[in-house]
Amino acid sequence: MKALARKRAIHVMLVYTGGCNGCDIEVAAAVYSPIHDLEQYNVMLTWNPREADILLVTGPVTKKIAPALKEIYDAIPEPKVVAAVGACAINGNVYKNLGGDLGPSSEIAGPVENIIPVHARVPGCPPRPEDIITAAAAAIKILSERSD
């Protein structure tokens, strides 16, 4: 019963941590575009951490946002799953790995896994809406297999 309810009603929260916004637009396209329509898989978008099960994080985490990200993560009740969407969230992408004479950016607090634990990763710059839907499906599977 627990697994069935967890599989059939999922709330996703999107958190943007200072990236270029391309991944956010693709997530918005995955949710709000009738062609992709994430809601048909019983995944509903919410903006309230108290209501969320899956946290989608986009963007390389800037130092200013890092404490806020941690607080939002703590505010989500268990069981929760974090999905890092896009190359910035996975390894910092161009901001942390490319640089000229002065080196890469010093304003990045690192990829998401430096701050909160990550369970699913969606590569791409930005990932296509189909990839984001696949990631949501994978996260649902992780959620429904948790026994607590």
Partner: peptide, 9 residues
């Protein structure tokens, strides 16, 4: 049902 089965923060 899903919310009932979540842990209470």
């Amino acid at each position: 049902l899903k919310f009932v089965f979540k842990h209470k923060p």
